[in-house]
Design a protein around this nucleic acid. Structure first.
Lengths: 120, 120
DNA sequence: TCTATCGTTGACATGGATGTCAAGGTCCAG
DNA sequence: CTGGACCTTGACATCCATGTCAACGATAGA
């Protein structure tokens, strides 16, 4: 599929898909005329990128993380330098802290909302 | 306490504390000489701001969220316009989505790490 | 064939969180 | 009373994820 369709399917803009590509997060092939040609699996990949971005990871980290989330994983063992493993581990710790912070504050807001609505 | 000490305690920079203030997130009093004067409770507040920022919320939202997390909450009922309640509700939904996304991807990375280490 | 729609690249703009620097005021310790 | 450490404000710089626009090529339908 072409960039416009992928943009529609993933609710992004063509501009961003090109940006992700320049950051090395996706690598579409090209049609004879130079148009980018995405295959169906890229839809999920883009959604995952969006999710991780929204979760606060920068593209630089996402680039390291993505290969590990691909299936099958064994293909990517060769890439696993100790530095990357360290990066991944500390990144999971940051993610855990984020999860806790988000959960705690979300629950506090929810409780606030429920109290306010009880009074209304 | 003054800005330098608060910065040390919260591991931020004075620059950022002034920025948060300009965004309306903290309101320190002033000493006679014009120096900002923070009381101890501001430490937790700043940490909470940092956590929410790190979790991906923009200062604009944090500003709406913070009053609801204060204790005692009843003081802030007057602020609770329907629009703010709507904002809060949709924001908790975004937070929930983030939490799921973060959890899913973190667990995938953790599993990858454990598989890689098993082989090492 | 003309036109609308989509694609390409590249440049420039913007908004948000931060750093840095300048010019000056305050305060304490020697 | 002087030097250094800290504070003030304000301006400018930076990084990153995005938007927007210009100039141009490709394609498909009236």
């Amino acid at each position: 599929m072409r960039i416009g369709e992928l943009a529609r399917l993933t609710e992004t803009s063509p501009r961003l898909l090109r940006y992700y590509e320049k950051q090395g997060l996706i690598l579409p092939s090209r049609e004879a005329n130079g148009y980018r040609d995405y295959d169906d699996s890229q839809v999920d990949r883009v959604l995952q990128i969006r999710g991780l971005l929204d979760a606060g990871l920068p593209t630089r980290i996402i680039k390291q993380v993505l290969p590990c989330l691909d299936a099958p994983r064994r293909i990517h063992f060769a890439d696993a330098t100790p530095e990357i493993l360290d990066t991944l581990e500390s990144e999971t710790e940051r993610m855990t802290r984020r999860i806790h912070c988000l959960t705690r504050n979300r629950d506090a807001i929810l409780e606030y909302l429920s109290v306010v609505r009880e009074l209304a």
